[in-house]
Write a protein that binds this DNA or RNA. Structure first.
Lengths: 229, 229
DNA sequence: TCAAAAGTGTTCATCTTACACCCATGG
DNA sequence: CCATGGGTGTAAGATGAACACTTTTGA
């Protein structure tokens, strides 16, 4: 069955930049294409938006299909519509970015035949289409947003140490932070709760585990509180 | 002539939230629809994206066609794709926002039959489609962005007084600012240049006219300078 | 001479920054 | 006992907030 319109229409896709953090580096999840165009090249997970499907749903569906990731932080990034961005025809892509803790979402075998892998951000292969531009846009957004919204926690397990949190900020912002000042500031917000637990199986003094108080943050935000750093 | 595809495709539009500032209030430019659906209702200027046309070009073309505005500040806002947002069929809209100085872009008679008018932001009529949501998103973006990027100047004439600038910030941010502190801070950036001219035809002491030093700002930005306020 | 906005500095409080040592744990 | 990261306070400097009067101009 075919579908006919009075005027030509661009096709519509979603693409997802999935960031993962893992005790060391910030990574991005890529998929090796098995179809033309760019067969064999690495690309962002994504695909065509179905009719009567919301954009965010399309992004979540494609993520689940291609990477197995579900119920993760996902936010719209930007829409890319340069006429030549796909060699086949005019395809407009609405890009999203997602944040996951690699500790809680272990490197996935894709559910279908396609190969998925995490790449260190400073060691990514050539990407298909304009996906390098989309990735660069996502990195800029992450760097900008992490300073004034508490999205960094999405990259950590639900319980984390202050050392992990500081390390995450250092990697994302690409700058060293002073340990005492960082702790003072972050604890000063009152948004971290000491769980009473401590790290297990570490070869040094075990650190306290904290969690982010989302409830409290939402209350403060209503009163005009804005983040920090 | 018709166009046929294997799978159904959503239609693609652009919509523009045009903010104007005018010695007093922040306004938005709306157009009264003369076609169904929502005939007679006010809506954001916009229309269908042509095939092989970039999204930004489509937005600029529609703006020129419907409002006569050209060469203005324009930036992508967000994409709206809820399946029910248009009663006819699934139409995805990429929204943009634009900033103009009303002093330099006088209220336009639309070039075609449609009526265009500037509405005070706290006195807008019911809007067609999901345009209220788009407008609310644009206002939030403007408020957020004005604090850390010098986009406020796009809403003023190229030469402006510090009083006008302060007033603009007060209106956009919805808070009163201290005159002396505001001047100290804004002049302290070194990004305003005294043109040597002064206001004409005002019924009180004439103020100096400044302009924003875009060149200097771009240089500072490269060195990691970020805005303020 | 009145009204309306322009222009101008100082003080106090707050926040930011720089900085070094001991502690607990496992290997 | 050593290596590794955890945990802690203070002082100096920078930044932000509060605050009132004189000047200029046209009506």
């Amino acid at each position: 069955m075919t579908h006919t319109y009075q005027y030509p229409r661009a096709a519509l896709t979603v693409d997802c930049v999935v960031f993962g953090f893992d005790e060391g580096d910030l990574k991005v999840l890529l998929i090796q294409r098995d179809l033309e165009p760019f067969s064999g090249k690495w690309a962002l997970p994504g695909g065509f938006v179905h009719i009567k499907e919301s954009l965010e749903n399309a992004a979540r569906r494609e993520l689940a299909e291609e990477t197995g990731l579900k119920n993760i932080f996902l936010e719209q990034l930007y829409s890319f519509g340069a006429p030549e961005r796909d060699p086949r025809e005019h395809i407009v892509s609405v890009a999203y970015y997602a944040l996951v803790s690699l500790a809680e979402h272990r490197p996935q075998a894709a559910t279908d035949a396609r190969q998925a892998a995490w790449f260190n951000l400073d060691d990514t292969p050539d990407l298909a289409f304009d996906h390098e531009e989309i990735l660069a846009t996502a990195i800029a957004r992450l760097r900008g947003k992490v300073r004034y919204e508490p999205i960094g926690f999405e990259l950590l397990p639900s319980r984390f140490t202050l050392g992990q949190l500081q390390h995450l900020y250092q990697v994302v912002l690409e700058e060293k932070l002073d340990k005492r000042n960082f702790r003072k500031k972050i604890l000063g917000t009152g948004l971290l709760v000491d769980t009473g637990e401590i790290q297990q199986d570490v070869a040094h003094r075990a650190a306290r585990l904290y969690r982010f108080d989302e409830r409290k943050y939402q209350q403060l935000r209503k009163r005009g509180f804005s983040f920090w750093l």
